[in-house]
């Protein structure tokens, strides 16, 4: 990164921080003039305190760990199986006409609609929630992989073949790197589907995790806990979306000259 780049990035960051401080100020003012009663609309300070307390007594940390575990298991499974099925959809016509049709249909079903079925099949437990996470993201992963493979420029394949590449080598050294940019975008999207499914699932029945912490806040009429947990959920979202996937996406796109 050049000096100019750093300067520009720094400027952008400062603008963002000022904007956030401005929002905090408005929040604080609304609290100060008692626009809403304090138990419905806590001050930034109260929420911040709850946040610190939540981390200090480890409730939030456990909540995050439990939710993350479900997310990694569920989304990991969806990623592997979805990519594999997506690849088959792109390559095998008969599978595309049958399974592809099914995937498109199921994709329209909001993931939380799988919850009743999951509860009856697996009971009120971990399996049910992981099932919902899988169903929430697997179709999107499948479709992303299918379109990534279908959109490989045929020229790359021809060039690869002309340079003597065949079979498994062709997959590892040409097809896989060729789909990487759209595949990473697909993973990012699949992840956000999984994350949303997980949160809605966790809120609907008692099973620990961040979603439940949010609902506990509601049941105790503790608005500052509700808001603190929402902030945690947003932060996790940003960390994955912007930092992890964003950095991966940018580095690939820069290499390709797409940016």
């Amino acid at each position: 990164m050049t000096k100019v780049d750093l300067k520009r990035k720094g400027r952008k960051l400062i603008i963002k921080i000022i904007f956030l401080l401005f929002l905090l100020l408005i929040w604080w003012l609304l609290y100060k003039i008692h626009f809403w009663p304090a138990w419905l609309f806590p001050s930034p300070r109260q929420v911040f305190k709850t946040l610190i307390k939540g981390f200090a007594n480890h409730t939030f940390i456990w909540g995050i760990l439990i939710s993350m575990r479900r997310l990694f298991i569920g989304f990991g499974f969806a990623l592997l199986v979805g990519s594999f099925v997506g690849f088959l959809l792109a390559k095998v016509k008969i599978i595309n006409e049958t399974v592809g049709f099914l995937v498109l249909g199921l994709q329209t079903l909001p993931s939380i609609c799988w919850l009743p079925l999951a509860l009856l099949w697996f009971g009120l437990n971990e399996k049910a929630i992981i099932f919902v996470v899988i169903m929430g993201s697997i179709m999107s992963m499948t479709i992303a992989m299918e379109s990534a493979v279908k959109n490989i420029p045929p020229l790359f394949i021809r060039a690869g073949k002309m340079l003597g590449v065949q079979g498994w080598q062709l997959f590892c050294h040409v097809i896989f790197p060729a789909i990487l940019p759209s595949f990473i975008t697909g993973i990012k999207q699949g992840w956000s589907f999984a994350w949303r499914s997980l949160m809605s699932g966790e809120m609907l029945f008692i099973t620990l995790g961040l979603g439940q912490l949010l609902m506990i806040g509601r049941q105790l009429n503790d608005m500052s806990q509700v808001m603190a947990v929402m902030l945690v959920i947003i932060m996790i979202g940003i960390i994955f979306d912007k930092l992890i996937f964003g950095v991966m996406e940018n580095s690939v796109r820069r290499k390709w000259g797409l940016k």
């Binding site: 020229l155 790359f156 060039a159 080598q169 040409v174 990487l180």
Partner: peptide
Amino acid sequence: GLMFQEAALFPWLKVKDNVGFGLKM
């Protein structure tokens, strides 16, 4: 060896790795 109208270089590889691609395979 066959060359096309488009260079068809692999955008994910540096120039030297593109040139060495066939030998690496």
